[in-house]
Design a protein around this nucleic acid. Sequence first.
DNA 1: GGGGTCCTTTGACTAAAGTCAAAGGAATAT
DNA 2: ATATTCCTTTGACTTTAGTCAAAGGACCCC
Lengths: 302, 302
Amino acid sequence: MKAVSEHETVSEHVAAFRRFNRYFTRRIGALDDHYLGQNRPLGEARLLFEIGDGASLRELRARLGLDAGYLSRMAKALEAQGMVRLSVHPDDNRLRRIELTPAGRVEVKEQNRRADALVASLLDGLTPAQRARLTEAMSTTERLLRLAAITVEHVDGASPDARATLAAYAAELDERFPEGFDAADLVRPEEVSGDSGAFFVAYEAERPVGCGGLRRLGPGVGEIKHVWVDPDARRLGLARRILTALEREAIERGFDVVRLDTHAVLTEAQTMYRAAGYTEIPAYAEHVYAGHWFEKRLRGAR
Amino acid sequence: MKAVSEHETVSEHVAAFRRFNRYFTRRIGALDDHYLGQNRPLGEARLLFEIGDGASLRELRARLGLDAGYLSRMAKALEAQGMVRLSVHPDDNRLRRIELTPAGRVEVKEQNRRADALVASLLDGLTPAQRARLTEAMSTTERLLRLAAITVEHVDGASPDARATLAAYAAELDERFPEGFDAADLVRPEEVSGDSGAFFVAYEAERPVGCGGLRRLGPGVGEIKHVWVDPDARRLGLARRILTALEREAIERGFDVVRLDTHAVLTEAQTMYRAAGYTEIPAYAEHVYAGHWFEKRLRGAR
DNA sequence: GGGGTCCTTTGACTAAAGTCAAAGGAATAT
DNA sequence: ATATTCCTTTGACTTTAGTCAAAGGACCCC
C-alpha cells in the first residue's frame, strides 16, 4: 500500500518534470538559441560567448565538451573573422590563450542585448508581482535541480579531491576566524581513511564542491570533521546531504553516537546541526578553534 | 527615483531568467536530447516522438518548424525502417497521414522509458519534500511563462478566430448549464465590432485560447460579454488579463462603468470578478442564463 | 636527458541538418 | 472551368557538427 502510493508520487514528479522540460526546451530554449546566433553558426556563437575575459582552449574544450580538432578550427575561423586573438598561454607554452578583440566584444555585447531584450519582452506580459513569483520559482527550481545533480562520494582521505576541498576549507576558515586557521590543524588523511574513518566529497558535474570527514573518537563514538560546501554551491541543502552520508557511514561502522565541534563564528553551521537533530553538549575535547560542541544519537532511541 | 528602481528590478528579473535558461538548457535539456536519440539522429527521434496517435505531415511541419522537403525525406526514411506508415489523408487527398507501426510504437515507448528513468535517477537525490517543492516550483514557472507568452489581441467580432472561440464558449456552457445553452443567444458580431464594441482573442503560439467582448449598454455604460478561456489554458491568470484588456478598451471608449452578468453555476468566474474589483448589483437586464450581476466603476473614484 | 604525458594542429572523413526551387496532383474560389 | 492556392515529393546543393588519428612541440618526473 505504502509502496504503491510512494511509487505513484514519484512517477507523478517524473511526469511533471518531463512536461516542464518539454515546454521549456521547446518554447524558451529554442527561442534563445535561435536569436543568439543570428548570422553565425550556433557553435561559434556559443564559443564566442564562453570566452568572456579570455580563457585557454583547454578550458573551453572542457566547458563546452568539444573535440580538440573541432575547437581548434572554430577558433581559427573566429580569428580570421577578427573576432578573437590567439596567443601562447603565458604560463604554459603548450596551451593557447584566446581573447576577444574589440570587434568580438562588440558582438558579444550585441548578443547579450538581444537576449536581454527578448526576455524583457517576454516578461512584459506579466505584472510585477507575477514577475517576482516567476523569478522565485525559477530560482527554487534551479537550486533543487543543482542539488539533485550533485553526488556525494566516498573517497580516500589522501586523494587529490579530498586534499583540494580540505585546502579550500582551511583557506576559508583562515579568513573567517579572527585568530586565523592553520592548515596543519586539519585531520591527517589516515584518520579519515580505511578502518579509522571515512571521507566524502560532493561533486557537481565532476567538480568537487564540498566535503566532510568521519573519524573514530572512542568506542561507539564517531566524530564528524570539516563539513564544508563551496560558496558557489551554498543554499542548496548540500551540507545536509553530506551530513546524512556521514551519519549513514557512522551507523554502518557501528557507532552509536556522533559528535562534532564548531567555531563560535559559524552560526549558520550551528543552526544546520540543530535542525539536523544535534544537541549542544559540554566540551568533549579541547580544540583550539572550537566554541560549541554537538552530539547526535544514531540508534537506541533517546 | 521610482522609475530607476522599477527598471532595476526588471533587469534583475531578466538576469535571473537568463541564468536559469542557461543552466536548464545546458544541463538538463542537453541530457535529455542526448539520451533520447541513442541510435538515431535527433531529428528522426523528435519526429517519431511527435507523431503520437497519428498526424498529418503538415501538422508536424508546423509543430516542429521543419522544411517540407526535409520532413518528407525523414518520413520516407522512417518508413523504410518500418517505424511509420504513410497514407493519403482521408479528409484531403493533398495531405499525407503518418502513423506509427507497432515497431515504431515500441521504440517510442522505449524512448519514454529511458527518459523517465533518467529523470527518476535525477530526482533520486532529493528527499520527498524536496521533490514536491521542485514539482511545485516547476509548475509555477511553467504557468507564468505560458501566461507571459500569451498575447491578447483586438480582433473583429466576425473574424474566424472570434467565431471559433465563441463557438467553443457556447459548447462549454451548453455542457455546464443545467438548462443548456443556445448559441443563438451569443452577441451578434456587429455588437462587438467597430463603434458598437470590441472583441479580444487571446493567442498562445498563434492558437486562440480565450476571448472576451465589450458592447455598449447605454450612455457611459459598457457590458462585458463572453469572457472565456480554453481548458488547456486555465489557471494561468488569463481571464484576468482578458478582463484588463476589456476594461482598458472601455476606458478608451469613455465608459464610466462596466457591467456583466454570469450564471449561478460559474462560481470560479464570480470569485474572479470579485477579486478584480467587481461588486454584485441587482439585475440590470433580464437574461435567460444570468443569476448574478456585477459592476465596476472605471473612473471617478467611488 | 629520456620516456611519458599533455595540448594543439592538421588532414581526411562522415553524418546530420537544412535550403531552395521545380513540378505535379488536389482542393478552393470565382 | 479556370486560375490560384496547397501540400508533398524530388533533385541538387550547402553548411554545421562532429570524429579519429597522426604528428609535433612543451612540460614533468625521475
